[in-house]
Write a protein that binds this DNA or RNA. Structure first.
Lengths: 353, 353
DNA sequence: TTGAAAGCGCTAACAC
DNA sequence: GTGTTAGCGCTTTCAA
């Protein structure tokens, strides 16, 4: 007695409806599934029988035949992170409008978990993938998705050497602008903090595991270099997840850094707390800027100057692109880049002294 | 040529692997699926062939036979809301550990969308449902889920007249405590604000559409009544989504209210902004307290006194319960209630004057 | 327009 | 331990 969970009842099938309506299974299926040709009379009769019996179509059986599941797999770093919450919502709305549902998996930014997620989605025969890749330099975990032939759209990050559609924000320009603001205010000792993992000290030209962080670091060090700051790479602090933002900020303050650029709002939040606990005044003692217009950044005292990204739209656009690919759009690979917008608030001041 | 998307290739099946390994389909399936009895030699041979051919199991076909899809449907109000982000993450982790994936749908707190979501999940033959019901007084949209015989666990809210498991926080006690704090500080004109929809003015005994908000209002008015405040129900402001928190707060200030209890952190955030824009000092002119320890509440100036809920744990526990039910646990319906914990900060002061 | 029959990829008896 | 044979619930030829 398969196809039924623990409880006793058997699901109503097309056969049951067909029998009740006194037509063949094929005809009942046509009437129920809205395809092929069915006379109006028969159609109504079948529908009535279905209603009467409480028929619920089995989408899985349909998928077995058509090869289409009407589901999209989405792999995010962590759905609890507001960034992914917003992107997922944007994607969900577009997907739903196009008749797709989302199967959601968290990767925790780990390649292993990501590969696992892809494999689960592959087994469930999703029609396409939406992923914020954990590693954009070694996107091996994405290969199975690519090889499956099902469309894959990357969002928030691009991946090296993978010919797939991507939807990201202009992190390079955003980082440049934020850094310029700090430099113009007179800062020279500016630190960049990110949670991204990286072996050893950061050196100019190193490729970071996330293309977006990579672009941010590149923009940051470039502007610093142009401003005549020697060894700008020495101001890049990575591995903040492992080492702790708190510890990093403390040592930065000791080292006399006068400004901090946080790579995301979670890092900024931790840095803000540490500075406050340390009694270091923002922006009088240390200036602080960040990416993402998280809600707290406009509520804190002082409010934080941020580079805002159209997160919702990035998710939505990625889904739109994916839906088009699923529909068979064979246009060349697209790489969409959304502009970021600066929101100036009160967290920048000239360096002290 | 079914079972394959737009592109040309055909998926590798158990039959292909069986042929390559020169065994029967059944044996290949046993080796691949890790069930039944297979000799080690054959098992290795089959696995090697599978690897070689690039075999990926079709979970859907498996579901057709076993009746188990290893997916759980989760219906939340809005995944962009931090509350649901956290609860979903809690649920996702437990689900994954038990071998289940999540199919995520947003209801926007509308019964229609919720019913739709349930029907989609039913068609996809999820093994169980996790839902934060849009309406707990008229849970009609949940009936199809209940009738399907597949387990359903409600979280954050209970539903009237539905014999299903629920996992919620103790909103009544939480609201009482928060209100007591305000009363003890000397407040008498205290307003309660929620986005929940309600026809006409709130009257004592009205059942609100969300059991959690209902409990909060009940606790709030009870404490006010015990403190001798006449007509406490007059201080309950609902429909804030429709009318706007901003407009409500402005009129409240005009009416000389000296304290506000926000039903959730999103309402609190909007209220905080309005008070700030109005130049009304918190807590000197108006005290403000809220539910949920959202990150901004400890970063704002002043930091907000809140009633914190174990959101992550609520999601996790709901998933744990559901997984047990799916496994066939026939124990009586459970109603889990988690305590809320008060976090005192600086947003309460005696009323002015 | 309708029906009969085959088949999607897998599991589950049952026999050997 | 292995193979044979039926299905799961649907769609899809192909005839009638």
């Amino acid at each position: 007695m398969p196809a039924d969970p623990a409880n006793g009842r058997r699901e109503i099938t097309v056969s049951d409806v067909a029998a009740a309506a006194k037509v063949s299974k094929a005809t009942a299926a046509r009437a129920l599934g809205d395809y092929g040709a069915v006379s109006e009379a028969v159609r109504d009769r079948v529908r009535a029988a279905a209603e009467q019996l409480g028929y619920h179509p089995n989408a899985l059986a349909k998928t077995m035949n058509t090869g289409r599941s009407n589901s999209i797999g989405i792999v995010v770093g962590d759905i609890e992170n507001p960034f992914f919450g917003q992107a997922t919502r944007g994607a969900a709305d577009v997907a739903k409008a196009a008749g797709f549902d989302l199967i959601l998996l968290n990767s925790d930014e780990e390649a292993g978990a990501e590969e696992n997620a892809i494999s689960v989605l592959l087994a469930k025969r999703v029609d396409g993938f939406l992923v914020a890749p954990a590693s954009t330099t070694v996107p091996a975990s994405l290969h199975p998705a690519v090889e499956s032939g099902r469309p894959l759209v990357l969002f928030d990050r691009v991946a090296d050497g993978l010919d797939v559609d991507t939807v990201v924000a202009d992190n390079l320009a955003g980082a440049r602008r934020l850094t310029e603001l700090l430099v113009e205010a007179g800062h020279r000792r500016i630190a960049f903090i990110s949670t991204i993992g990286h072996e050893g000290d950061y050196r100019l030209g190193d490729r970071l595991g996330s293309s977006s962080v990579n672009d941010r670091v590149t923009g940051f060090t470039a502007v610093l270099g142009e401003a005549g700051v020697p060894n700008p790479e020495a101001f890049v602090r990575l591995n903040a997840r492992r080492d702790g933002v708190d510890a990093i900020v403390r040592s930065l303050v000791d080292e006399g850094v006068t400004a901090i650029l946080a790579s995301d709002s979670l890092v900024a939040q931790a840095a803000f707390r540490t500075l406050r606990d340390l009694g270091v005044a923002i922006p009088r003692d240390v200036s602080l800027v960040a990416f993402d217009d998280a809600d707290w950044t406009s509520l804190s005292d002082p409010a934080i100057t941020v580079m805002s990204q159209p997160i919702h739209e990035i998710g939505a656009e990625a889904a739109r692109l994916l839906v088009r690919r699923i529909a068979g759009d064979g246009a060349p690979t697209e790489h969409l880049v959304f502009p970021q917008v600066l929101i100036e608030r009160e967290s920048i001041a000239p360096p002290p002294g």
